[in-house]
């Protein structure tokens, strides 16, 4: 839906409009520029005060050296594995739950919605100490299962409510009723009717939980302490903790660039779905 508000667009107003947007873009994107520029600066550029705004030479070698300086490949592989698995688990759990909450009326429905709403608001730190001990006692520290659990349970409440809103508005009940008459059972209806129609909503849920898991730091830092299990976020934090701001910062910034790219790609591919999914719950229309 595109709305024209009848704004008179004089030339001066257009110039002002784009000037402001450009200025905001510069401020918003400056950290990314600085990250990239630093990642290709030769060591002698880093120590210069005041720092130069453009590198004197492009030092692409940082992007090669970083793979042997830290176990970057293992970090990347772990991050990808955890993000993919928790996305899968989150989509399955919240898909079923959202379907139930949007299609059926039952006794515990209100209470369940309350549980999801509350879980979305509870500080993660409220559960962190007992959760750590639960994982420890079950032997799930430094395991894939442990971290995937930690990631998906925090994404499930938000995703369920997001999908619920989507399902409630997207699927006509009459379609399901005719399927019931045709002899489809509830599970069949879910897979044959609800799932295909709500695919955009599911894509939104998936992107949301993927980015959440890829970016996550706190849970990983307590559950994954062995270096072979660490995801990129924790690996990077360890690395900067060891080096601080020194010439090695250019190597670090190269890692930062590598860590940001997957998030941006996933977001770029499907941002329309994500934005629609996020706003659909709050904005009815």
């Amino acid at each position: 839906m595109r709305v024209s508000h009848g704004f008179p667009s004089t030339k001066w107003q257009l110039v002002k409009h784009y000037a402001i947007l450009t200025a905001v873009s510069v401020i918003v994107l400056f950290p990314f520029y600085w990250m990239f520029v630093t990642s290709v600066k030769p060591p002698e550029d880093i120590l210069r005060t005041p720092p130069n705004w453009w590198p004197t030479a492009m030092e692409v070698v940082n992007y090669v050296k970083i793979w042997t300086t830290i176990p970057l490949f293992i970090y990347l592989k772990n991050s990808l594995l955890y993000a993919a698995l928790s996305t899968a688990l989150c989509v399955v759990l919240s898909g079923f739950a959202a379907y139930s909450l949007s299609r059926f009326r039952f006794k515990l429905r209100k209470l369940s919605i309350m549980a999801f709403l509350t879980s979305q608001l509870v500080p993660g730190t409220l559960t962190i100490i007992p959760f750590y001990f639960m994982m420890y006692n079950m032997g799930l520290n430094n395991t894939v299962i442990g971290i995937v659990l930690a990631y998906s349970i925090w994404a499930v409440p938000f995703c369920t409510l997001m999908l619920r809103g989507y399902l409630a508005s997207a699927i006509p009940v009459s379609l399901e009723e005719s399927a019931t008459i045709d002899g489809c059972n509830k599970l069949g209806i879910f897979f044959r009717i609800a799932l295909p129609i709500s695919l955009p909503g599911i894509v939104a849920t998936a992107i949301f939980s993927f980015i959440l898991a890829w970016n996550e730091f706190m849970w990983a830092s307590i559950i994954l302490t062995k270096s072979g299990y660490k995801p990129l976020s924790v690996g990077m934090y360890d690395y900067i903790g060891k080096t601080g701001v020194t010439p090695a910062i250019s190597l670090y910034m190269a890692t930062a660039v590598i860590a940001t790219i997957p998030s941006l790609i996933v977001f770029g591919i499907a941002q329309k779905h994500l934005v629609n999914g996020l706003t659909a719950g709050a904005v009815k229309g």
């Binding site: 399955v92 079923f96 739950a97 139930s100 429905r109 509830k186 879910f190």
Partner: peptide
């Protein structure tokens, strides 16, 4: 309704 909801 309950089966769908239970896992989450």
């Amino acid at each position: 309704a309950y089966w769908f909801l239970l896992p989450a």
